[in-house]
């Protein structure tokens, strides 16, 4: 599921909210992210009640909904961008209800067909995911599971068994878009996770600066710069936000911009 990478390379993952700042703006914004060197992009389906998102992404969701963003629009966008950028992995991110209403199995089939490589569903717990694993495996669609610093050992085991593609490591307790530090405690946390899974680790929640990326390089495989990017996109526009992302990708290591 992960794009190819050199051993020490830190891949940068970023974000698009389908319908934010508008449906038309999604495609050029994603082109800009790819040109900046971003290797993985989450396509977030907006939801009316995004409880795991901080103010930046929650606001983007509300705007995106007004602009007509939804499951169908996300699938159409996925199909377009996965063809256009075959070297980039596109993941579908959504809260459960829009997918549940669409029909989970139908959604999995349509997402795989649209070229989506993985799914992030923050409010789908491992217990509810497990029955769907046979279909997901057949479709080669990876459920990206989240782990947190407070996930107890027996749960880590269960989550690791269900995880595919990579494990999304919540770096701190809390919602998206706040500060995190990369200290010895973080290293212990990563070491602990590696006892349960051999999958690549993606760190999210609180990855905001070039310094964060330099710190993470060599310690994990993927860094998710999501709400920070959407913040820039909202304040500076998609082009300037992509320029900032290019600087971050450079800090992530050896990834020169391709366009």
């Amino acid at each position: 599921m992960l794009p190819e990478k050199k051993p020490q390379e830190l891949l940068v993952m970023s974000h698009a909210v389908v319908g934010y700042p508008s449906l038309e703006a999604n495609l050029p914004a994603i082109d800009g992210l790819v040109a900046a060197g971003v290797k993985m992009i989450e396509l977030q389906i907006p939801f009316s009640d995004p409880v795991a998102d901080g103010p930046t992404l929650a606001h983007a969701c509300h705007v995106a909904l007004k602009n007509g963003g939804g499951v169908k629009q996300a699938l159409a966008l996925a199909e377009q961008v996965s063809r256009r950028h075959p070297q980039v992995s596109f993941l579908l991110m959504s809260y459960l209800n829009p997918l549940y209403r669409y029909g989970l199995d139908r959604l999995f089939i349509d997402a795989a067909e649209a070229g989506v490589k993985g799914l992030i569903i923050p409010d789908l717990p491992v217990e509810a995911l497990e029955p769907h694993l046979p279909l997901l495996d057949k479709l080669n669609l990876a459920p990206i599971m989240m782990v947190t610093p407070v996930t107890p050992p027996e749960r880590l085991q269960r989550i690791s068994a269900a995880a595919r593609g990579m494990v999304y490591v919540v770096a701190r307790t809390g919602v998206t878009g706040s500060q995190t530090r990369w200290d010895a405690e973080f290293d212990n946390y990563i070491a602990r996770l590696k006892r349960y899974t051999d999958l690549p680790l993606a760190v999210g929640f609180g990855v905001r600066s070039a310094e964060d990326l330099r710190q993470l390089r060599g310690r994990v495989e993927v860094a998710a710069v999501c709400s920070r990017y959407i913040e820039w996109q909202g304040k500076l526009g998609s082009d300037a936000a992509a320029e900032r992302m290019a600087e971050l990708c450079e800090a992530a290591g050896g990834m020169e911009a391709t366009a």
């Binding site: 409880v51 795991a52 459960l96 923050p122 409010d123 789908l124 717990p125 509810a128 599971m145 989240m146 782990v147 947190t148 407070v150 996930t151 107890p152 749960r155 989550i159 919540v170 307790t173 809390g174």
Partner: peptide, 11 residues
């Protein structure tokens, strides 16, 4: 019913 929350809240 059930418990459909982000993993962070589970513990």
């Amino acid at each position: 019913g059930g418990r459909y929350t982000p993993e962070i809240l589970t513990p």
